[in-house]
Amino acid sequence: MKFSTIMTLYIRNLKQYRRLPAVLAFSFIVPVIQYIIFSNLFNSLSDVPGNPYGDYPYYMYITPAIIILTAIFGSVNSSAALLVDLNTGYFDKLRATPASLAPQVIARFMSEFTRLSLQLLLIITVSILYHKRVSGVLELPEAGFLGLFLIVVLAASFGIGVVGNLVVALAFKTKSEQAVQAVFPLFFVAVFMSTAYVPDVLLPDWLQSAVVYNPSEYLIRAVRGLFLEGFTDSTIDSVTIAVFCIIVLTAITSTINYRTITRSIE
């Protein structure tokens, strides 16, 4: 497997998105709309007695949730270009060239990671500009540039490693865009069943108990810590747990993905 082959495929994959503007727009615009609507609709949540995040305006509280939602949206759509290749037979044609199977899959994940990282940077920029508009202050997340970098890497790794692997496996299995898009509500519900929009203590009792079993919760806690609190001990703990969750889940989904792809060529 030559590195130059992977890079040629990687660049080609990124160029493909010039011709898929709707995919890019959809996975960016929906989280932005949700950000603006939720920020205004639930603004008074910050004033609820007992809210541990009452010192922050609500739009700042939900920014991590919107970042994760962008990662999930973007990852579900990461199958779009792959499905084009699978359904036109071009994926198989490339398999009979030096592109073969592994370089194609690696380059696909690399290009989707890049695209998603850029989309995440864009949504973070939107949140920073929104904050400036409301408060008049232009400021980075509490953890600074390093924190910003970590937020993007964590969210993109979760998106591509966990969601992307499942979506790619589904794309290979079904070759259907509809089937792939149908998984989005599952992740959407997972985000809602966490502290993404409402702090832990304000959730119903049953949901407070369920939240600990929700992997996306750990990612949201890590991103929120970096965004609002900076590199405190509790943030570092949250980031460590989030990294552990991403590694374990990526290992599981990669195995599923690997088996699905290899079965498709047996």
Binding site: V84, D85, T88, G89, Y90, F91, D92, K93, T97
Partner: peptide, 15 residues
Amino acid sequence: ENIGFALQEAGLDSL
């Protein structure tokens, strides 16, 4: 590296 392969359906990048 040494073969050219054209599948039954012309598999081409539609983008």
